[in-house]
Design a protein around this nucleic acid. Structure first.
Lengths: 191, 191, 191, 191
DNA sequence: ATCTAAACGAGACGGTACGTCAGGTCTTGGT
DNA sequence: ACCAAGACCTGACGTACCGTCTCGTTTAGAT
């Protein structure tokens, strides 16, 4: 690289950036996504509203970034085992994050809802939170010699039931469910 | 007085009822759910806002009723065949309704979004649109001798991938997908 | 009249109307026109902001109506005497309203300022507060046989110095000043 | 220390100074005072906002300085004649500046408006634009032997009608008006 | 020839108020 | 009692400017 464009002017405040992400996530978790307003974020973060609008097009994107930041760290390479074991491990790991006391489950659901109401947001939602996990699981498929053209289907078979339970709450996300889904995916992979 | 005699009073206008449901669905389809406001429904239906609030707690419930009404008629007992064939047939039938030119897909997505934002609505959403189809498919399982305690899991394996594709649009809902999902469900049922 | 159009719907709330005018004038007098915001009026009047915007295009118009309402009552036909005496009496009467402890002077000044910044408001300002007094004084001129084509000039000679002192505060508005201005006007009328 | 220490540092940029005054006046005239924002001045002048706030407390003061600079040059000692003639000449000269194609009338009006909304600005407004002309006319009074204790009144009689017409636009500022006002003032002076 | 400090263009910042929109309730006169 | 119309209160929205606060750069007197 020869030179960065380096424009004049005050730099973006890292403090404000962090405070906004933190406040957004805190409010969404404590009061619920419904109570999350841009004014509330601004006040909680000690920030002007314009500072939020300068960097994010909507409050949903703020929450998305906050969640993505914390989410990214949690995805680890699954341990070694059969395909079914690895998929089950991967899903169980995801469930722990969603179920925890500071569980991100409700926030994930709210973002999924936003994604249905705004296609612009939907694209970013997928890119920041969904594609990520799909890629991690696809990597497992590759490692186990699954033909790439079947990855899309298998990912839908793996993540679909999880999201369905999360969104409609017909049953909880536990280790048994992880195993059952994983078994189903493994069979479809072999088929 | 012991009992109110239940006397006079104008009866609920069937005309207004129909007009409201029709207007809500029409707007949701033509302009998108985002453009659907209670005022817009009232104006399009030639109705006072109060008439809407008198009978429905929110606009989402109006759409829900409109959709449920049309949806109910479409669910038919699946034809005869193997479990996989019947499930595939059931799913394919659902896909046709979602994909059609006047497809209800986007409206379904919007209602699912509302269900995430309001637990009161979530219950009614499940009761009116989801439980319905689950029961129909469960009936197929029963007919094929699947143990009832596995129905919950199998339903999640069947509907989960469908909703996942619908909500995240990673791929379309076609007959191939119906067959693959059905095969996976059938295998899990036998397992 | 055969029939008023009489449309359906709730009538404009006289309570809200009065509360808005009262709150606007009270705030303008107590806290100053600078502190007068639409939100403050709405809160003080116990009214939604939209109710203000539904009936007035700006807060200045609210104050204008409030002031005009109270101002109208105060203009009385001047007593009988020479032209100079009547003009002096008329001006002195005006000064009392402007100077009083609940003096409207500062509010008048603020509205004059608004009139300079918005020509739409300027027209209404003149119609509601200025033309009024001009007409009253012109009537005096007529009664004393002053040719109508000189009224415009004489009104400017009479009101100009008053506004000038009010706006620039080089000196106060007292009875002496009223007499001096009146004398000058009377002489110009005779000239 | 007797003299200011005069420490190091870059000197005030004369270029920026001129550009700011020019931009402010240009915007006020072309787009109207309402469109005059500090950001707009800064951009038009190719200057940082801080450079404006470093030297002026508000945008009104910028315009004031710009106007005062151009205004100062125009006030000339009136020619020789009767008191009425000199006053008329003085006023007529003022009118020409206000009426011209690049007339300063609207900007004067806007500054008068600002003066009503800020007493701090009012003082500077009087000092820079008003006292100036009052002194020039008072000098005429002195030259014609008018008692100093009547100057205040006579100045109000002279300038009041002018400002009144300027602010309320009931009639234009023409030579006839100058003569009429001057005659009235001259009579009051003699009285 | 360096050092130091002020002024500079740029632009992000915390705020305040704006004017609008939609939600859900209440009132009016009519059926 | 129900209806169409429409005014009402509430609360959140996204925008416009304000006046302040960094940035990194430029300029010029002091050392």
């Amino acid at each position: 690289m020869i030179s960065a464009p380096r424009r004049a002017g005050r730099k973006r405040s890292a403090t404000a950036h962090r405070a906004i992400l933190g406040a957004a996530l805190a409010i969404a978790r404590k009061k619920g996504y419904r109570a999350l307003t841009v004014d509330a974020i601004a006040e909680a973060a000690g920030v002007g509203k314009q500072t939020i609008y300068r960097w994010w097009p909507s409050k949903a994107e703020v929450v998305l970034e906050a969640l993505a930041e914390r989410s990214r760290a949690r995805i680890r390479a699954p341990g070694i085992g059969t395909l079914a074991e690895e998929v089950a491990g991967f899903l169980a790991q995801t469930f722990r994050a969603l179920n925890g006391p500071h569980g991100t489950g409700p926030v994930f659901k709210a973002l999924m809802a936003e994604a249905q109401l705004s296609s612009a947001f939907a694209a970013r939602f997928r890119a920041a939170l969904i594609d990520h996990r799909r890629a991690a699981l696809a990597e497992v498929f590759t490692r186990h010699g699954v033909a790439p053209e079947r990855h899309g289907l298998l990912l839908d078979l793996a993540f679909g039931p999880v999201w369905y339970r999360l969104l409609l709450a017909y049953a909880g996300l536990d280790e048994d469910f992880a195993r059952e889904v994983a078994a189903s995916v493994a069979h479809a992979a072999a088929y």
